[in-house]
Simulated assay, not measured.
Amino acid sequence: MAERVTVADLVENTRLDVLSGEEFLSEREITTSDISRPGLELTGFFNYYPAKRVQLLGITETSFAKGMDHAKLLDVMRHMCQPETPAFVISTQLEPSDELYQAAKEANIPLLGTKMTTSRILSNMTNYLEGKLAERQSIHGVLVDIYGVGVMITGDSGVGKSETALELVKRGHRLIADDRVEVYQQDEQTLVGQAPKILAHLLEIRGIGIIDVMNLFGAGAVRSETDIDLIVHLEAWSPEKKFDRLGNADESSKIFDVIVPKISIPVRTGRNLAIIIEAAAMNFRAESMGYDATKVFDANLNRLISENSKKGPNKQD
């Protein structure tokens, strides 16, 4: 489920200045990440006016408005100030028209400004709103940042996910979420994971209870969110179960529309899972940079077979 975002949140997170309507910031809700550039609307064309979007006016729109008749411009601005319109944003430190001030005040709509260019503030607002308003999926697991690789550890309850995360934190890596990971799709290739607010920075260790990782290990031991690059699934070891030994199983999981690489690790007494997962993250990073140890092994094996074939069978005396 997506988060609730108000104009007050937008102002705080995208460095906007409040020109008027400050008392309405918290009650105006934003329901879409799309931003409108009302150009045709200034000419009086409202057949497809996206009233639910934040309305962004730049140099082109404000320059056009300056040449309009007062009565006509006031009428247009009143049409743009619909009950569901969250806010107006004026870029490049431009001065809004008196007609926009009046119409926004009548409709209790905040009027915001910024020194940033239209392109920059458009990008900032879109990125922020897409992250906040994206559909979310709650996944049972632990999310850790290991050398810049976002690793989500999954597995049945009691398999050792939280204990492994604690060991990884002690080894200098950073915890994002324990028990529940809130996941959303940032773009076509990127998944982002974060902790629910109630569980941020906390780990549950059986026999100890809840521990605050930031309090015990410092601010450098936690992160608020990270991309999910790799899934490590912990499974109880069984002699009947076959696990990948050469690294060519090519497992994956699909979350939303993104395919995430996945590896399965058998859990058995005496195995140091933290070191194994750390090595898996480093190996994933090496593969992302073009080095594949499995291919190197295959090449070495083929070369050895070729050399032995050329020598021929050993002759007996």
Rank of each mutant, 00 (worst) to 15 (best):
A8I: 01
D9F: 00
L19A: 03
L25S: 04
I30D: 07
T31D: 06
S33R: 09
D34I: 07
P38T: 05
P38L: 10
G39C: 11
G39K: 13
I59G: 00
I59F: 02
T62I: 15
F64P: 00
D69Q: 10
K72P: 00
L73V: 07
P83Y: 09
T85K: 10
I90K: 04
Q93Y: 11
E106M: 09
L111N: 08
K115W: 06
T117V: 04
R120K: 12
S123F: 07
T126A: 12
Y128F: 15
L129C: 06
A134T: 09
R136P: 03
L143C: 08
V144S: 06
G148I: 14
S157T: 07
G158A: 03
V159A: 02
E188S: 15
G193P: 09
R206T: 06
I210W: 08
S224M: 15
T226D: 12
L230H: 11
I231F: 12
L234A: 07
R245D: 05
K254M: 12
D257F: 09
P261E: 06
S264M: 12
I265Y: 02
R268S: 14
G270F: 11
M282I: 14
F284V: 13
Y291G: 03
A293W: 06
K295M: 12
I305N: 09
N308R: 14
G312C: 13
P313Q: 12
Q316W: 13
D317T: 09
